[in-house]
Design a protein around this nucleic acid. Structure first.
Lengths: 197, 197
DNA sequence: ACGCGATGTCCGAGCACTTGACATCCGGAG
DNA sequence: CTCCGGATGTCAAGTGCTCGGACATCGCGT
């Protein structure tokens, strides 16, 4: 079930992603060289193609891994609050703050238009969005027992899209956006809880 | 030069040695099972044979790795003293103390006669002895510039064999043995230094 | 005497990585 | 404009290592 070969396979993928992420953070998607990723990892170029299919696959994989890490942090912030509204505000603020510091996000949004990596959060954003939704939804259903599942999903859906929008197109500081969003969604959650059996 | 495959190979060997060493420390050489080492590492039994040849090869490899680690510590003790005699005493004491605490040594010498691992330090002790000699000799020549190389080698030779003897057949406490050995070899080193150009 | 477990050997199949070659595309230099 | 270097992506053959199973052998306890 967890043979040495399995661990080696995971390690290979992880090291390839390390090399790729480093390259992207330095020179963006355009600066990412398949041959360079292979060389840095000590593997042939073909192996990179076997693992990720094509260059876009590499970017998606890097984004997916970073998204998972990102959400671990955000979910932790959400879990620290007992009240849903407080949790939502904390999570939003944490997410926007992290995004502002994130090297990968900076690289993706660095030179608008010139770097196609930005499409990860815009026109080709399904992957990241679905992944984030999946993780947040599961976490929220676990921590908000008093909120009906369907309404929790709606809440996550709205908040997530607003947050991504603020990442792509920065507005006010994280705390302000978080407070605003919490205030807007507060009545919805209150009513949802009130009607809940 | 340092491909992913190379690193994986080293890691495999290291994990196999971890599993083997653990087994030996628990049940001695007789309690070491090739199939168990393979299972614990998540690899086929054949792979263990490919790596080490046979069961005795596993034991030698475990001993070699442990000897290297052991000598790193002993050499450090030796390097902390500027005077050769002080260094020798410190190294001997450190070696005997470490040996007394070492799980692998305990397992090897645990049940006299019944466990063939003891041969590593007695009848089949060339490997460990040569390895130790190699490391100590190189270290000593570097740290004892005032002692002729040949005499340094002789000194290491004698001290090493005495120490191993004391590990196999324990006598007085480490500090006592170290002092005794230092006093016996002191005149030799003094004269050697005096005659040195 | 027998069975059991362990060591050690052999070999065929499979898998992943490597190597080299090739088609294609693009941007810059001449 | 043309050509060339560099990059992506594809393909096929070669290679090394591991796996799985079968087998012989040996020692040991029942």
């Amino acid at each position: 079930m967890d043979s040495f070969a399995d661990r080696t396979k995971r390690r290979l993928r992880d090291e390839l992603l390390d090399a790729a992420q480093d390259a992207i953070e330095t020179g963006g998607y355009d600066g990412l060289r398949m041959a360079e990723v292979a060389r840095r990892t000590g593997v042939s170029r073909q192996t990179v193609y076997n693992e990720f299919g094509d260059k876009w696959g590499v970017l998606e994989a890097v984004a997916a891994r970073e998204t998972e890490r990102f959400l671990l942090d955000v979910n932790a912030a959400l879990a620290e609050q007992s009240d849903p509204i407080d949790g939502l505000r904390a999570a939003v603020e944490r997410a926007l703050t992290l995004a502002g510091e994130n090297q990968l996000v900076k690289a993706a949004l660095g030179q608008p238009g010139s770097d196609q990596a930005s499409q990860l959060l815009t026109t080709r954003g399904q992957q990241v969005l679905e992944l984030a939704h999946l993780r947040l939804d599961a976490h929220v259903r676990e921590h908000w027992p008093e909120v009906p599942a369907e309404d929790a999903t709606s809440c996550v859906d709205v908040a997530l899209r607003v947050v991504i929008s603020h990442i792509v197109t920065p507005g006010p500081p994280p705390a302000v956006v978080a407070a605003q969003l919490a205030r807007v969604l507060s009545p919805f959650l209150a009513e949802s809880r009130r009607l809940h059996v």
